[in-house]
Protein backbone atom coordinates (compact mmCIF):
# COMPACT_ATOMS: atom_id res chain seq x y z
CA UNK A 1 0.00 0.00 0.00
CA UNK A 2 1.32 3.43 -0.97
CA UNK A 3 0.19 6.31 1.26
CA UNK A 4 1.16 9.78 0.03
CA UNK A 5 -0.81 12.96 -0.60
CA UNK A 6 1.12 13.64 -3.80
CA UNK A 7 -0.28 11.88 -6.84
CA UNK A 8 3.11 12.22 -8.53
CA UNK A 9 4.84 10.43 -5.65
CA UNK A 10 2.21 7.69 -5.56
CA UNK A 11 2.77 7.17 -9.27
CA UNK A 12 6.56 6.94 -8.85
CA UNK A 13 6.27 4.45 -5.99
CA UNK A 14 3.58 2.45 -7.79
CA UNK A 15 5.85 2.11 -10.80
CA UNK A 16 8.76 0.88 -8.68
CA UNK A 17 6.91 -1.68 -6.58
CA UNK A 18 4.84 -2.94 -9.51
CA UNK A 19 8.10 -3.80 -11.26
CA UNK A 20 9.10 -5.76 -8.16
CA UNK A 21 5.97 -7.85 -8.51
CA UNK A 22 3.65 -6.17 -5.99
CA UNK A 23 0.01 -5.34 -6.47
CA UNK A 24 -0.63 -1.80 -5.22
CA UNK A 25 -3.37 -0.01 -3.27
CA UNK A 26 -3.14 3.78 -2.96
CA UNK A 27 -4.29 6.18 -0.27
CA UNK A 28 -3.89 9.98 -0.07
CA UNK A 29 -3.51 10.21 3.72
CA UNK A 30 -3.45 8.09 6.88
CA UNK A 31 -7.21 8.17 7.38
CA UNK A 32 -7.89 7.01 3.83
CA UNK A 33 -5.38 4.23 4.35
CA UNK A 34 -7.02 3.04 7.60
CA UNK A 35 -10.41 3.03 5.84
CA UNK A 36 -8.92 1.10 2.94
CA UNK A 37 -7.42 -1.49 5.30
CA UNK A 38 -10.96 -2.33 6.50
CA UNK A 39 -11.99 -3.30 2.97
CA UNK A 40 -8.97 -4.87 1.25
CA UNK A 41 -8.34 -8.58 1.38
CA UNK A 42 -5.71 -9.89 1.66
CA UNK A 43 -4.08 -7.31 3.89
CA UNK A 44 -1.11 -5.56 2.24
CA UNK A 45 2.29 -7.01 3.19
CA UNK A 46 3.89 -3.60 3.40
CA UNK A 47 2.87 0.05 3.58
CA UNK A 48 5.07 2.83 2.16
CA UNK A 49 4.12 5.89 4.20
CA UNK A 50 4.72 9.60 3.67
CA UNK A 51 4.96 11.67 6.85
CA UNK A 52 3.49 15.09 6.05
CA UNK A 53 -0.06 14.62 4.79
CA UNK A 54 -3.35 16.40 5.45
CA UNK A 55 -6.11 14.88 7.68
CA UNK A 56 -3.92 12.15 9.23
CA UNK A 57 -0.15 12.17 8.91
CA UNK A 58 2.14 9.19 8.52
CA UNK A 59 3.32 9.08 12.13
CA UNK A 60 -0.29 9.02 13.36
CA UNK A 61 -1.03 6.25 10.87
CA UNK A 62 1.92 4.17 12.12
CA UNK A 63 0.77 4.63 15.72
CA UNK A 64 -2.80 3.63 14.82
CA UNK A 65 -1.72 0.54 12.90
CA UNK A 66 0.67 -0.59 15.63
CA UNK A 67 -2.08 -0.41 18.25
CA UNK A 68 -4.33 -2.74 16.20
CA UNK A 69 -3.63 -6.47 16.58
CA UNK A 70 -5.14 -7.24 13.19
CA UNK A 71 -2.31 -5.42 11.39
CA UNK A 72 0.55 -6.97 13.34
CA UNK A 73 1.94 -8.71 10.25
CA UNK A 74 2.11 -5.58 8.10
CA UNK A 75 5.56 -4.07 7.51
CA UNK A 76 5.67 -0.29 7.81
CA UNK A 77 8.22 1.70 5.82
CA UNK A 78 8.33 5.49 6.00
CA UNK A 79 9.13 7.22 2.70
CA UNK A 80 9.46 10.89 3.54
CA UNK A 81 11.47 14.10 3.33
CA UNK A 82 11.67 14.18 7.13
CA UNK A 83 15.35 13.41 7.54
CA UNK A 84 16.49 14.72 10.91
CA UNK A 85 18.08 12.11 13.14
CA UNK A 86 15.45 12.77 15.83
CA UNK A 87 12.53 12.38 13.43
CA UNK A 88 13.78 8.99 12.23
CA UNK A 89 14.13 7.84 15.84
CA UNK A 90 10.55 9.01 16.52
CA UNK A 91 9.18 7.02 13.60
CA UNK A 92 11.04 3.88 14.68
CA UNK A 93 9.83 4.33 18.26
CA UNK A 94 6.25 4.59 16.97
CA UNK A 95 6.69 1.23 15.21
CA UNK A 96 8.01 1.87 11.70
CA UNK A 97 10.33 -0.91 10.51
CA UNK A 98 12.27 0.87 7.80
CA UNK A 99 12.81 4.37 6.54
CA UNK A 100 13.64 5.82 3.14
CA UNK A 101 14.48 9.49 2.85
CA UNK A 102 13.23 11.43 -0.18
CA UNK A 103 14.69 11.85 -2.70
CA UNK A 104 15.27 8.16 -3.42
CA UNK A 105 16.21 6.08 -6.45
CA UNK A 106 14.23 2.95 -7.42
CA UNK A 107 17.15 0.81 -6.22
CA UNK A 108 16.83 2.29 -2.73
CA UNK A 109 13.22 1.15 -2.42
CA UNK A 110 14.02 -2.29 -3.82
CA UNK A 111 17.02 -2.80 -1.52
CA UNK A 112 15.11 -1.75 1.59
CA UNK A 113 12.29 -4.15 0.71
CA UNK A 114 14.93 -6.85 0.23
CA UNK A 115 16.43 -6.08 3.67
CA UNK A 116 12.93 -6.60 5.09
CA UNK A 117 12.73 -9.96 3.36
CA UNK A 118 9.91 -8.81 1.10
CA UNK A 119 11.74 -9.06 -2.21
CA UNK A 120 14.11 -11.88 -3.09
CA UNK A 121 17.46 -10.12 -3.14
CA UNK A 122 18.15 -11.63 -6.55
CA UNK A 123 15.55 -9.40 -8.16
CA UNK A 124 16.95 -6.20 -6.74
Amino acid sequence: MVIDDSRAMRLILRRIVTQLGFEVHEAGNGKEALDLLETVDPMPQVALIDWNMPVMNGLEFVTAVRSDERFRQMTLMMVTTESEHGQIVRALAAGAHEYVIKPFTPEAIAEKLALLGLVPSGIV
Partner: peptide, 30 residues
Protein backbone atom coordinates in the same frame (compact mmCIF):
# COMPACT_ATOMS: atom_id res chain seq x y z
CA UNK B 1 -3.11 19.68 -12.60
CA UNK B 2 -0.16 17.42 -13.35
CA UNK B 3 2.18 20.42 -13.20
CA UNK B 4 0.74 21.62 -9.89
CA UNK B 5 1.09 18.17 -8.34
CA UNK B 6 4.55 17.46 -9.72
CA UNK B 7 6.28 20.77 -8.97
CA UNK B 8 4.52 20.74 -5.60
CA UNK B 9 6.19 17.43 -4.82
CA UNK B 10 9.57 18.70 -6.03
CA UNK B 11 9.47 21.71 -3.70
CA UNK B 12 8.24 19.44 -0.90
CA UNK B 13 11.29 17.18 -1.27
CA UNK B 14 13.73 20.08 -1.59
CA UNK B 15 12.03 21.96 1.26
CA UNK B 16 12.16 18.88 3.47
CA UNK B 17 15.88 18.54 2.88
CA UNK B 18 16.43 22.24 3.58
CA UNK B 19 14.44 21.83 6.82
CA UNK B 20 16.92 19.19 7.98
CA UNK B 21 19.57 21.97 8.02
CA UNK B 22 17.38 24.16 10.24
CA UNK B 23 16.92 24.03 14.04
CA UNK B 24 15.04 21.02 15.42
CA UNK B 25 11.36 21.67 15.95
CA UNK B 26 10.79 23.29 12.55
CA UNK B 27 7.67 22.15 10.71
CA UNK B 28 7.11 21.89 6.97
CA UNK B 29 3.81 23.02 5.40
CA UNK B 30 2.10 21.28 2.52
Amino acid sequence: DDVADAVGELVNVIGGNVKSLLPDGSLLSL
